[in-house]
């Protein structure tokens, strides 16, 4: 389902992908640039979150700056076991997202944690509980981030 966004919603989504003020009244400041009031800004962000348009409202981290670690993991899951394995994987709070993709490696998920040791423990448990191998592909270098999508 595509949520109907009006022009102000779109402006909020586009602007806030670029940043959010760090000051005492940040909603008022961000709202001012869009020509709306603070209360309307808060109400609209609340609705965008509830509707699932925003997956996150807050800080994005460089986890490797504080010893955190994240990795992309692939698995080849037999079709008849797909839902069962997805449930095992998704139950870990360290799993940030998980997609089925069209390939023999058909399950792709990101594991993020405060340390490599925790990531390793999650991967070991996934393998033990599913009996399937995981392909661990941590990033070696980042060329571009900032996943910004025009609303």
């Amino acid at each position: 389902m595509t949520t109907a966004l009006d022009p102000i919603d779109r402006a909020i989504v586009n602007t806030l992908q670029g940043g959010f003020p760090v000051c005492e009244r940040p909603f008022a400041e961000a709202a001012h640039g869009l020509g709306i009031g603070e209360a309307e800004m808060i109400a609209r962000i609340r609705r965008l979150r509830e509707d699932g348009v925003l997956s996150r409202f807050g800080p994005m981290y460089n986890a490797d700056r504080f010893g955190g670690h994240n990795t992309l993991v692939a698995m080849a899951v037999p079709a008849e076991r797909f839902d069962e394995v997805a449930a095992v994987v998704n139950a870990f709070p360290e799993v940030a997202h998980n997609y089925a993709r069209a390939h023999s490696l058909n399950m792709w998920f990101v594991v993020a944690a405060d340390s490599r040791a925790t990531v390793d423990r999650v991967l070991t448990e996934v393998q033990e509980r599913t009996g399937l191998p995981v392909y661990d592909m941590p990033k070696e270098r980042e060329f571009h981030v900032g996943l910004r999508i025009e609303a």
Partner: peptide, 9 residues
């Protein structure tokens, strides 16, 4: 440590 503050869609 914080890359940016804002939203992810």
């Amino acid at each position: 440590i914080i890359r940016r503050l804002g939203v992810i869609v």
